[in-house]
Design a protein around this nucleic acid. Structure first.
Ligand SMILES: [Zn+2]
Ligand SMILES: [Zn+2]
Ligand SMILES: [Zn+2]
Ligand SMILES: [Zn+2]
Lengths: 142, 142
DNA sequence: TATCATATGATATTCATTACCATCACGCGA
DNA sequence: TCGCGTGATGGTAATGAATATCATATGATA
């Protein structure tokens, strides 16, 4: 667990207890793809710790999301989770299902949009922008 | 069913059979909120037709989505459906859960973004932009 | 180290969605 | 207008993710 110290600090900053299970799940989130299902995270994390309950995984992921440490969104009907270190948008391939984060926010001058909507009475807290299409690898494979 | 003729035309254009169940579901989608769950759509449509199976509702919604007549996306873990007459983005209130469509696409010069990503090898087919926040009514109610 | 609030783990349960199959009816051609 | 055949419908059963519950274990603080 190379990032144990960093993750422990993150948990403490969020006023959450530092447990081996939580560290294992954060580590699993850091090593895999950009996002993963609860099942996948559980499978990877339990291998590292030995005994990790599946329901514990659900509860920890919910808690980490409530604390803002991870992002959560539904994809194909099942919840997906990923580390939420910085804001990013998503580029999703409809063929292979890969989910990649963008380097920068794609919304451009974000202030414009927020100001425009605030004038209509709606206060924007955050947004989710997902671009669907076909990635380079899948196009080449055709 | 005031829009029966219009919906029948839509179905025929999509090479789908015109059945009372499909018309009832399209009508239910047109009368309710911008999006609704399968359960809610079923409840409203069955009242209009008398006998409508729940599983039939699932199958019809899936078919209509495959044909591009309706939009589908997960919200809070359950699928939501709405008429997809034109492209729009979503303004979602986190307090009351209301989902409202935007008049125009919020992405601005869409071509810029598409071109930029195509240069990286990714071909954008469509996107989903959801803005989360608090609506005017909920703010006033505080 | 003692204490306690909280986290964990296992089971049972809920609920949306899918699978399956027998019956029915829309659309088309005679 | 009347059959016919393909596709649609409806019901039951099965799947699978997610939640509820509660006894036990453990991290944090003093
Ligand atoms: Zn992400
Ligand atoms: Zn963004
Ligand atoms: Zn919409
Ligand atoms: Zn848009």
């Amino acid at each position: 667990m190379p990032d144990a110290g960093r993750f422990a600090t993150l948990l403490k900053q969020a006023r959450l207890r530092v447990t081996p299970q939580r560290l294992a799940i954060l580590q699993a989130l850091a090593t895999g793809k950009h996002v993963a299902t609860c099942q996948a995270i559980w499978a990877r994390a339990r291998r590292a710790t030995g005994g990790l309950g599946q329901m514990t995984t659900y509860r920890i992921l919910e808690r980490l999301h409530a604390a803002g440490l991870i992002e959560q969104f539904d994809l194909g009907g099942v919840a997906h989770f990923g580390l939420a270190d910085r804001h990013h948008d998503h580029v999703i391939c409809q063929r292979c299902g890969s989910v990649e984060p963008t380097e920068t926010c794609l919304l451009g001058p974000h202030g414009d949009l927020t100001a425009r909507l605030r004038r209509s009475g709606f206060v924007v807290k955050h947004h989710r922008l997902d671009l669907y299409g076909v990635c380079r690898a899948c196009r080449a494979g055709t």
